[in-house]
Amino acid sequence: MILTARVTTEEAGMRLDDGAKALFPNLSKTEIRRIIDWGGCNVSQALVRVASRTLKEGDEIALGIMEASRCIDLVYRKEDLLYEDSDFIAVYKAAGFNTQRTPYQLKGTVEYAVDCYLKKLGLKEPARVIHRLDRGTSGVMFFPKNKRSATLISALLKEGKVDKTYWALVSGTPDRTGWRDDSPIGKLGKFKYGVAFGGKPASTIFTVLGEANGMTLVEAKPLTGRTHQIRVHLKHAGFPVVGDEAYGGAPAARMMLHCRSMRFTGPRGRIIEAVAPLDDDFAAAAPEVIENAPA
C-alpha cells in the first residue's frame, strides 16, 4: 500500500519525519523512520532516505507501507560470493528477498546489497540488474562490474547464449523422463501469467532428476526469458511448483524453485560459471530426492 499527501503551509519547514507524522497520523514516528531508512519514501517523486530533510510547501510525500517482518538486511561479503573476477560477480539470492528496489524498499534488496559491495571495492559503477529472480525464487544472480561487461551479458541473455539451469520440486509424478514446452505466455492479471493464445513465444526444456514420496525434482532450462516462465510451463504440464500457491502449488515453507547454475562465455573467451547450493527448506522438503540429484 502506498500513502500519498501534499505538504501544506502547516508542514512546510518541518523535518520529513515530523511532517509525515502530521500528514499520516495513523503511523508512528518509528514506522515512518523505518520506511524512510529502508527506501520506501519519495518526496516529489525522488527517493529520500534522510529523516531530517526539510519539507517545502507543495512537496508530495509518498510512503510505501511494507510489513516490518520483511525488513531483513542483506549484506554480501567477499566470502559469500559464488563467483568473482574483474568483470563479474555472482551472488546467492535467498528466497524471500526482492531482486531490485520496489516502491516500498531499497535496503534489503539484492540490488542494494550488491551496490554496497561494489562501493566497498572502490568502484563507482552502480549495481546493474541484467536478469531477475522472483522474490520466492532462490539461486544464482550475476552482476557486471562495468558497463562493457553489462553490455556483453545483456546481449548474451537476449541471444539465449547464457545457459541457465533451475531446479523445481513439484507434486506428482510425470509419466516421462523429459519434455519441452513451447507454449506462448501472456499476462492474465496484474501479477499473474499463463499459457495464452497470442502470448509471447516461450520455450523450456524439462528433465526429471528424481522422484520420491509423491514429489518430483525437475530440472528446467529456459530457452527464453518470459516472466514466470518455468512456473507457468510447469502448471501447464499439470505439475505446479510446490509452494507456488499463485499457480496452484501445494503449501510449503517457500516456493521450491531454485536457479541452480548459470554459465556463459566471458569477454576473453573464458567460460564463466556459478553454482548455488540449496537452502535448508528446499533440501528438507524432499531429502530422498535431493540426495540422489546430480551435484
Rank of each mutant, 00 (worst) to 15 (best):
V7R: 04
T9C: 08
E11C: 00
R15E: 04
L16R: 01
D17W: 01
A20F: 05
K21S: 10
L27D: 03
S28G: 02
S28R: 06
K29A: 13
I32P: 02
R33A: 00
R34I: 01
I36V: 05
G40C: 07
G40A: 06
C41H: 03
V43D: 00
A46E: 10
L47E: 07
L47C: 00
R49P: 08
V50K: 11
K56G: 06
E57L: 04
I61N: 09
L63T: 05
G64E: 09
G64N: 08
G64P: 11
R70N: 14
R70F: 14
C71E: 13
C71H: 14
D73K: 15
Y76S: 01
R77S: 12
K78W: 13
L82S: 07
D87E: 10
F88R: 02
I89Y: 01
A90T: 11
A90K: 07
K93W: 12
A95N: 10
G96E: 02
F97S: 00
T99H: 04
R101F: 03
R101I: 06
Q105S: 03
K107T: 01
A113M: 12
V114T: 03
V114D: 01
D115G: 15
D115K: 05
C116G: 06
L118M: 12
K119E: 12
K119D: 13
L121T: 11
L121W: 10
K124L: 14
P126L: 12
R128Y: 13
I130H: 14
I130F: 04
R132W: 05
L133S: 07
G136H: 09
T137Q: 03
S138K: 05
S138G: 11
P144N: 03
N146D: 09
S149Q: 09
T151I: 15
T151H: 13
L152T: 04
L156R: 15
L157C: 10
L157R: 08
K158H: 13
E159F: 06
G160W: 08
G160N: 07
T165S: 11
Y166F: 11
Y166P: 08
A168E: 12
A168W: 00
L169G: 12
S171A: 12
P174V: 10
T177I: 14
T177V: 13
T177C: 14
T177N: 15
G178W: 02
W179F: 14
R180T: 14
D181T: 13
P184A: 06
I185Q: 01
G186C: 05
G189N: 15
K192M: 04
Y193P: 08
V195L: 09
V195G: 06
F197E: 11
G198W: 06
G198K: 09
G198M: 07
K200F: 05
T204Q: 01
L209E: 13
G210R: 03
E211D: 03
A212Y: 10
M215T: 13
L217C: 14
K221N: 09
L223E: 11
T224S: 09
H228T: 03
H233V: 06
K235P: 04
V241A: 02
E245C: 10
G249H: 02
P251E: 08
A253F: 10
R254Q: 03
R254P: 05
R263A: 08
F264W: 08
T265L: 09
G266A: 11
R268A: 15
R268W: 12
A274R: 07
D279I: 07
D280F: 08
F282N: 00
A283P: 10
A285S: 09
A286G: 02
A286Y: 05
P287S: 00
P287N: 03
V289N: 00
P294V: 06
P294Q: 02
P294G: 04
